[in-house]
Amino acid sequence: MTEACALRRCTAATKKDVNRMRKSIEGSNILVTGGAGFIGSHLVDRLLDKGAASVVVIDNMFLGKEENLADAIKRGAILYKEDAEDKEALSRMIEEHAVDIVFNLATKALNYSFIDPCDAFETNVVVIGNLLELQRAGAFSTLCHFSSSEVYGTAVYEPMDEKHPYNPTTTYAGGKAAADIMLRTYVNMFDLDAFIVRPFNNYGPRQNAEPPMAAIIPLTAKRIMDGIAPEIHGTGKQSRDFIYVLDTVDAVIDLFDKMEKGQEVNISANGNTSMEDVITKISTYMGYEGEIVRKPRRGADVDCHNATNALVKSMIDFKIRSFDEGLAETLDWYKENL
């Protein structure tokens, strides 16, 4: 056997050993930062479905809502309305609940970075720094960190993969990119069991619909329901790789015991839809036939997100809804809940 072959075999064995040593979701005590928010609350539901021994949520309620966790709390989830930027609060919860695994979704909305750019950046960095330092001290064993497709900025090439360069266009995205880099360096320096999942443009039930923090789908639905004309900013040709939130959290659950230390994986629908098409689809589904207002392009807007999901499909049985199917489910939810 050549030295190179022996090294590859040894490396493969080491990766398998890492995954065998990682505690499974079932039977573990889990902390979810930002767990009362849009994606976080759906993740909490799925963690309970998977048999977690306990699920603890910390959320400063910036956009989180207790009602997002209504069913989860009935099933035993515990909500702390505190801030993950407070290291002492994090430490106390992790120790009190003997946390094994942390899922980090604590952040502030992209639109908030136009209101307080410095704070939007710092939230991402401070929270991941707190968690990595606590993990380095042995407070918990595994960290799954949620990044964002915004770290890539506009596509330099299509389809975008995990090797796509970082080119953040907002301080929100800059903070997300810095958090990713911090995690990778801690893994390299201290051999922590931490990894990165990077969802592209999530949509679905529970996504905030209140301006100025709302994303395009809930905001447009709400405007139509309130009798206000929807808006297209710029040409409307800007595109996003939309993925339904439940498809994202299902992928994260399935990826959990397959991710290597320091690995990052994009979670996307493998296609893109223009903002103009999104507005048209929402208007058609909701029976809106009125004016669509044209407004100037927003500063720092990303022109194109179009990602490949080849890596995630090679790791798990990755099933996703079509955009039309997911959009219909989402709009039906808004009709019932807004």
Rank of each mutant, 00 (worst) to 15 (best):
K258L: 08
L192G: 08
F200M: 15
L43D: 01
L47Q: 07
T308K: 04
F195G: 01
K81R: 15
T123I: 11
V197S: 03
G262I: 08
R298C: 11
R8V: 15
H305A: 09
N167D: 09
S314K: 01
R9E: 14
N266I: 12
I232N: 01
T220C: 10
V56G: 13
N167R: 13
E325K: 13
P205K: 04
S91D: 13
R136P: 10
I224P: 04
A139Q: 07
F190T: 09
G236W: 01
S322R: 07
G262E: 06
L255P: 07
A214N: 02
A209F: 12
G290Q: 09
L90K: 00
V252T: 07
L63M: 12
A120V: 10
E291H: 13
I30T: 13
G204F: 04
G287I: 07
D116A: 14
N167P: 03
I267M: 02
G34P: 05
I115L: 14
P211N: 13
M1H: 14
I267T: 02
I78R: 03
G236R: 00
V302C: 11
T14M: 14
K237E: 14
M259G: 11
D254T: 00
K261W: 10
P117T: 01
I282R: 04
K313T: 09
L7W: 11
I30M: 12
S274M: 10
E133K: 08
D45H: 12
N104P: 08
V57N: 04
L246H: 10
A137E: 11
K281T: 09
V156H: 12
K81F: 06
R184V: 03
Y334G: 07
